[in-house]
Design a binder for these strands. Structure first.
Lengths: 209, 209
DNA sequence: ATAAGATTACCCATTTATTGGTATTGTGGG
DNA sequence: CCCACAATACCAATAAATGGGTAATCTTAT
């Protein structure tokens, strides 16, 4: 019996997946979570074997959640379910301790295979994902292994509201120079070159909302 | 018996939803589609009563698909399933002919209610969506019915890649001055003030991807 | 306690974006 | 045939962002 926790910010996706997986007598859905913080609470209470984790969640994002699970509960397997196949993400998640990574556009059979493989201690990556990982390093790679600080995320959110460096400084009661530094560090950490790329990254990785 | 077609670019979401809905004896899932073009093909072949439509699909987006269905098959009901609650989109979809609009983070009960209501000829909107529609116009909201031209969308996509005005000009073989004009028009149409807001809007409204 | 990282702060040169104009040509719908 | 709008192009002033530094505190985890 494989005990599974499903984490996704879309309840409808959880409902559907639960219905699908419960057909399998060998699977037990022990619980659900809509954000990273709930995931941590649920693991403690429910002790699942495997967490099906969406990386696009509010409160605590996928990479941080993965790292936290790996640290506190080393025996819990993590299978990432997502729609992003950015190289940096995948690398970051693997380094954080995920055992598998499959895209949401994959079918039923592959999902079952992934669950069984990962639950059995193996690793599983969608074909598309595996291809992305073996790709040559392209010039405009979105990000490597981004670990943004709390403050940096806060600043990105202000940027997304269309505020300028000066306006952000006023709102946070600190110097414009400091915001300038933060923006520089954000660009450097994400290996990006301008605001447009940062906002797209933030939006697509669930940093905003 | 309600005959339903499910359209979403994530096969896993379709699989789950199918499993969930098939429990109801009154519902028959007649088919699936992963993009707008497939939706049109399937409707012709399968003659469903209702289409569950994700707006974030490749090939043909949600608004255009909705308008096309309404035009060619006026009797087919359209229930939008999505995660975006931008006012402009909701308005656009309603005008295009959708009968309902619910967010993917809503639960099972509400989904069933929405399906039954819409199939019965009524309209259904999630509480969140209804709230968005009655909200007062806030200062930093993109313009409701922004109708961006083909070229403008193309330029937004280039902007999202982090390209500068000069680089976009080179890639599209036109003058930088022209790109400047387009950017100005984009900001004006959306009633925004800088690139950050444009990229966030584009990302959240499904213009990118 | 100590080292690593986060947060703060400053300066300056350069590049880009934004704003506010004007204006010509092409094109699809009524 | 016209009109509205799309797409093109140009100029110039100003605002903002980016890239290159340096450096002092403050937190936090080992």
């Amino acid at each position: 019996m494989i005990r599974i926790l499903i984490a996704d910010d879309h309840q409808m996706f959880i409902d559907g997946l639960r219905s699908l997986l419960e057909r399998d007598k060998n699977i037990l859905i022990t619980g659900e979570a809509n954000n990273g913080l709930q995931v941590m609470e649920c693991i403690q209470k429910l002790k699942p074997d495997l967490v099906l984790l969406d990386i696009n969640m509010p409160e605590l994002n996928g990479i941080n959640t993965t790292a936290l699970i790996r640290k506190k509960y080393p025996d819990v397997k993590i299978l990432i379910l997502t729609m992003y196949k950015t190289k940096g993400f995948i690398n970051g998640l693997i380094r954080a301790g995920a055992s598998g990574y499959i895209l949401k556009n994959t079918g039923n059979a592959e999902l079952m295979e992934a669950i069984n493989t990962v639950a059995g201690g193996g690793t599983f990556f969608s074909k598309d994902v595996a291809e992305t990982l073996t790709e040559k390093h392209t010039k405009y790679t979105p990000l490597e292994d981004a670990v943004l600080s709390k403050r940096e995320i806060e600043i990105i959110r202000e940027m997304a509201k269309g505020l300028t460096t000066k306006q952000i400084a006023e709102r946070l009661f600190i110097s414009s120079y400091t915001i300038e530094t933060h923006r520089k560090n954000i660009l450097h950490k994400l290996q990006l070159t301008n605001t447009a790329e940062v906002i797209l990254y933030a939006s697509q990785s669930g940093l905003i909302n």
